[in-house]
Design a protein around this nucleic acid. Structure first.
Lengths: 188, 188
DNA sequence: CGTGCACTTGATTGAAGTCAAGCGCTGTGG
DNA sequence: CCACAGCGCTTGACTTCAATCAAGTGCACG
């Protein structure tokens, strides 16, 4: 996983100037304030967001409750995968958890760029594979670990998270109630 | 989802002869008997398996219990994604649930073929995206539906399944115990 | 004909959810 | 400058869904 992240990084660094320029042309820097939405419910996800600075979450609503599906940090890419891939209205919402700077890349322009440049196709594939590896892992965690183990695992991976992200959001990311998370923390 | 499957299908049909020949050269038909392993625990997944006939499952072991991660039918592609993508030993096991005929495509040869043929890169991306869409859906089901709802949903999607696949496997696919599944079925 | 597999049914347990109350900040308006 | 509203979190009591343990049934087939 970590290795694969580096592989992508190296791949990007190895890209020729022409390809990098192409990418540059279809990307723009944008800033979001804490609690701003990068993508609202019902909109089509027409951009991917490479986070340069800040923290972001993806979530959806179910029975009036927020279910956090992903927490994202610097150098990670936030995208509502279903909406982005199928270009349909999104159930997922993307929100800044802090003031955030992103590099935004437009879907349609990226699709066009990929047509003429196999390197970008390959990049897209690698990024998608990386997300899928992450998602498989997360799913397996849910199938095999209990609430406490999932919390400890999150702590271990992203202990910085806990300091900035409200417990309500962490609980919903772990698929447990706020009260349960509170009790888990009380028992160290 | 369904639409995207058709999109891939159409894309394959639209491929030029050269590309199709290339694919043909790196693929072979293989047959497996019921209960045979297409991929064993600890092996590297060096092939993808397009199922031409039969039923297949993917599962892994946790605390001595089998956890079924995917059930696959005709025209679907079975692959241990983590092992295949990273070319590392697999935790997932792929097993035939009936006598099965597959079109097997070698990882390394496919990687080489993709280098010279962007169409194949694009195909790989589409197939990966399709798997990811499926996986996201499955994960959301686990987060939002209870055991009964998940069973009903499976019935609705694959009612044929229920007739051939043992309940033990269905239960582990639904993330519940055999007993619970039995009780759910008793309550219609 | 009996051994084992697939499934059912019953009794009990346990992990986490829900409902409810309360605490301690922070910040805002009177 | 205090007062109180609201948010973020904790704690307690109770409930619920599904797991586990334990028998038992019925069928297949060697």
């Amino acid at each position: 996983m970590k290795d694969y992240f580096n592989k992508i990084d190296n791949f990007i660094k190895s890209l020729d100037k022409e390809t990098l320029d192409l990418l540059d042309n279809i990307s723009t820097i944008r800033e979001f304030k804490k609690n701003d939405y990068l993508l609202k419910h019902g909109s089509i996800c027409q951009n991917s967001f490479l986070i340069k600075q800040g923290t972001v979450r993806k979530y959806h609503l179910f029975n009036g409750k927020e279910i956090t599906t992903q927490l994202l940090f610097e150098n990670e890419i936030a995208v509502a995968f279903n909406s982005y891939t199928l270009q349909v209205p999104s159930n997922e919402i993307i929100q800044a958890l802090s003031n955030t700077i992103v590099l935004q890349t437009n879907y349609t322009l990226f699709q066009k760029a990929k047509k003429n440049n196999p390197k970008l196709l390959q990049l897209d594939l690698m990024i998608t594979e990386y997300y899928t590896l992450w998602l498989e892992n997360r799913f397996i965690e849910f199938q095999t670990l209990n609430a406490t183990q999932r919390y400890l695992h999150l702590l271990q991976k992203h202990h910085k998270v806990i300091k900035t992200v409200p417990l309500t959001i962490i609980a919903s990311y772990l698929g447990i109630s706020l009260e349960t998370l509170s009790r888990i923390r009380a028992n160290i």
